[in-house]
C-alpha cells in the first residue's frame, strides 16, 4: 500500500530534521566547511518542502475548501519566518560565529518543530479530509520533495 499524503510529508520533515542535526553537530564542533555542506543540504531540502506546500498542497486545499485566509495563510507566514532564519544561519556560518549559529539554530528549530507539529497533527489530516485520495496530487507532492 502506498504512503498517504500525510505520511509522505511527515517523513520528509524527519529527513529535514536529520539534515539539520548534522549541520548543528558539525558547527558545534567548529568544523565549518562540513557544517556548510550540511546546512546547504538542509536548507535545500527545506526549500523544496516549503515550495511544494505553497505551490501544490495549499492551493489544492484552498480550492477544495474555499478557505484562503485561514490556516494556509498562517503556514505561509511561518515559512517566511523560517526563510529569514535560514538567512541568519548562513550569515553566522559565513562569519564562523559559533554562538550566533547556535542561537539562530535553536530559534529556527523551535519554530520549525512547532510549525511541523501543527501541520502533522492538524493541517495534513485536514487536507486529507478535504482532498480525499487524490493520486495525481500525491504524485506532484512527492515529485516536489525530491
Amino acid at each position: 500500500m502506498s504512503a498517504s499524503l500525510s505520511e509522505v510529508l511527515t517523513e520528509h520533515h524527519k529527513a529535514c530534521d536529520e539534515a539539520w542535526a548534522l549541520a548543528e553537530e558539525r558547527a558545534g564542533e567548529g568544523r565549518w566547511d562540513e557544517a556548510g555542506v550540511q546546512l546547504k543540504a538542509f536548507t535545500a531540502a527545506m526549500a523544496r518542502h516549503l515550495s511544494t506546500e505553497e505551490t501544490v498542497l495549499f492551493p489544492a486545499f484552498e480550492a477544495a475548501t474555499g478557505i484562503r485566509g485561514g490556516p494556509t495563510l498562517v503556514m505561509r507566514f511561518e515559512h517566511d519566518q523560517l526563510r529569514q532564519l535560514f538567512g541568519e544561519l548562513a550569515a553566522a556560518l559565513a562569519a564562523k560565529d559559533g554562538a550566533g549559529f547556535a542561537g539562530a539554530g535553536e530559534t529556527m528549530l523551535v519554530l520549525m518543530q512547532q510549525h511541523n507539529t501543527k501541520e502533522e497533527h492538524m493541517l495534513y489530516p485536514a487536507c486529507e479530509r478535504a482532498l480525499g485520495s487524490d493520486a495525481a496530487l500525491l504524485e506532484r507532492v512527492a515529485a516536489g520533495l525530491k
Binding site: Q81, G100, G103, E106, T107, L111
Partner: peptide, 16 residues
Amino acid sequence: WLHLSRRGPGAPLMHQ
C-alpha cells in the same frame, strides 16, 4: 522572539 519577530526584523534570538 515570536512576538517581537512579528513586529519586524531584528528580534533577539532565543539565546539573546
